[in-house]
Design a binder for these strands. Structure first.
Lengths: 217, 217
DNA sequence: CAAAAATATGACAACGGTGTCACTTTTGTT
DNA sequence: AACAAAAGTGACACCGTTGTCATATTTTTG
């Protein structure tokens, strides 16, 4: 948890700190991310960081929580009960998700790293928890959808969960690799969205979800 | 490339070196893997490592090549022309693959890390190449299978490749997480294989491939 | 057996990392 | 204005890392 000092910081300064730290942890894994680089980028003293957070792990945990909150803000509007079936819902989750990737590319990348690329022992316990939770949530989903007829009952729940998780990771990777440049250019130039890229992305997501539907329905 | 000195080493010593180094690089990502730990484990002098390899990267590249060779040895017997369709072939690739995971768990883990978890900048160029190659191979596959009728022609090739790659990664992760303990216990105790685990693994692979088939055929 | 070639050694330099702490500066309060 | 509280600072200790190299030891060769 961050200290009072950090919370009392001028919004501008606090936000600059968060962004720079996020960038460092999004581009490097936990072990390689360097507090030295962060303070040099921000032109602040080493001691400040330790007045805001007890240590590196504390900072990482805060960034994780912060990013998850940002993501929830973008996703919470997508409500399962408003969709006729799981598939349109799941599709929209990713379609809406792209807005998060565009508006919060650092958070998005950081979370992507946490979910699929991080392997430092210092943070593994927190990530493992995270994955177990994700699996539990998906398991409930799949069981519900089996009753709704969105997913056929003959397929093994655990395997369906595995299948869907793998697909989610796949779409995540797609965004990080194929569309990241477009997203970054967008942000840097403050131009309107690269509409073609976004449309292409949406089409890809739709096709992938269609495949998922073929497999599971 | 390793030096003559390394190649001239007594088989026992060279193999011990490879195993210990593999273990270190399988358990830690490139940046965190420590040559110090390797030499302490082996009780050899620091200088020896640098008489065998020019530097850390050189060692890593050798281990990568070594592991790939080991994997090929296990996989090469699986010949597409011997299977009636892509799906039985793809399934068997993983079924045979499990032997590799059991007999060469260190190589298996190291390659898994390279494929899905590594993110050090020092080695990214080599991994990126690797992934591009994999994608090319799968693209050829998918195009061929479209002509054979194993994969329906309406599905976009690139998307199918993405889908199959993600599934491969998913099965890889499954082995590393769910069955790794069973595999390690097997090796440590020199007992016969944990047959139940293996059978369970095979069943899971079959079901996952079945889902893939549902999606793409 | 002696000389030469090959191999092994570990102290060392140079670097970059984290976390600490006595001290300075800024801000707020009375 | 004077004092107190809060925030900022950067030199420092300590650690672990990689790669080097002069030297010691072992093995091979003539």
């Amino acid at each position: 948890m961050p200290t009072e000092t950090f919370l009392n910081l001028a919004d501008e300064k606090r936000q600059a700190f968060i962004e720079t730290a996020l960038k460092e942890f999004a581009e490097n894994n936990y072990d390689s991310a360097s507090i030295n680089k962060i303070i040099k980028e921000l032109n602040i003293a080493r001691g400040s960081v330790y007045q805001y957070f007890t240590d590196k792990l504390d900072l990482w945990l805060y960034l994780k929580e912060y990013s998850e909150l940002q993501k929830v803000k973008h996703i919470q509007s997508v409500d399962r009960s408003k969709y006729p079936d799981f598939w349109t819902y799941y599709e929209d989750l990713f379609i809406k998700g792209i807005n998060f990737d565009i508006e919060q590319p650092l958070c998005s990348r950081f979370l992507y790293r946490i979910g699929y690329k991080e392997s430092s022992k210092d943070v593994s316990e927190y990530i493992d928890n995270w994955k177990v939770k994700a699996k539990e949530i998906f398991t409930v989903w799949v069981d519900n959808e089996k009753n709704n007829g969105s997913i056929k009952k003959t397929v093994n729940t655990e395997i369906a969960v595995q299948f869907i998780l793998s697909m989610s990771s796949s779409i995540g990777e797609l965004v990080q690799t194929k569309y990241s440049n477009a997203i970054e250019n967008n942000l840097a130039s403050e131009k309107p969205l690269f509409t073609e890229s976004i449309e292409e992305y949406k089409m890809t997501v739709k096709e992938l979800v269609q495949l998922l539907k073929n497999a599971l329905k």
